[in-house]
Design a protein around this nucleic acid. Structure first.
Lengths: 134, 134
DNA sequence: TGTAAAGTAGTAATCGTTATTATTTTTTAG
DNA sequence: CTAAAAAATAATAACGATTACTACTTTACA
């Protein structure tokens, strides 16, 4: 009596595209990437599957920036940098939240912390260069 | 030849409401709070002023959760806990990002970090209690 | 293959947010 | 104390990312 997943070709392609990029794409970006290969792909399908991946833990939402939700196929804990100039979202590794004392704090507050996300805002390397040369 | 700000009564009331609550409200929440006292208040005015406060540094956006942008009148650096059960957004003080080495990292990456926000997800104290008693 | 469950395409609907325009409020000059 | 200019607002329409819906297609499995 258990639900059986029908793993479609398009679902696989969406997940593969998400896992294969480091650009933390929006639903529309994934859609545009796959459209040439799957001309009858529907944008709704991309939205539905991205949402599903987040629920099943195969992906995470990085957040909503400038009105667009960005996704990440890398579910390992790491931070992100959002560029205020070009809107790019980049991985930032090497910032461990282990030493912050989250466990002790959640015990003190009486809450339950299941996830911690660190988001930096500023300028990406490319936009830093452009600003210097200007 | 400089622009002069006309500080209206409603703008002051919106900022006061935002500064006077710890609930990290949405635009609509602020609107509902002020509606009894200002019956002709327009929701657009609340949106416009909240956006303006963020631009002028009088407030910050905590992020978009479940489709609603949440604001905070406390611009001092601190983290937030978003409850997945009831949607509440709470302040979390006592988590300093000073020791993470952001400066060294931004120098290594060649980027420019202007802001760092830490957002925790899980259960707020109230929902932890409810879950225990269930 | 055949059948039922799951998935998708195409389109309409939803709804938080923003833009627009006429009107009102605020500032400041005379 | 007026009055004109600048800024702000109310009311409404428009926008656009996301979701819902329905008929059709694909997948899993006997």
């Amino acid at each position: 009596m258990e639900r059986k997943e029908h793993f479609s070709r398009k679902r696989a392609a969406i997940l593969e595209t998400l896992k294969g990029t480091a650009c933390h794409p929006t639903a529309d970006w994934v859609y545009q990437q796959l459209k040439p290969q799957y001309p009858d792909l529907s944008l709704g399908t991309v939205y539905r599957n991205l949402k599903r991946f987040c629920e099943t833990g195969q992906a995470v939402s990085v957040g909503v920036f400038d009105g667009f939700e960005h996704f990440d196929g890398d579910t390992s804990p790491h931070a992100h940098l959002v560029c205020r100039q070009c809107g790019a979202v980049m991985d930032v590794f090497g910032l461990s939240l282990e030493g912050l004392g989250l466990e002790r704090l959640s015990h003190q507050m009486g809450c339950q912390v299941e996830n911690a996300s660190l988001t930096l805002k500023g300028l990406c390397p490319d936009c830093v260069k452009q600003e210097k040369s200007a």
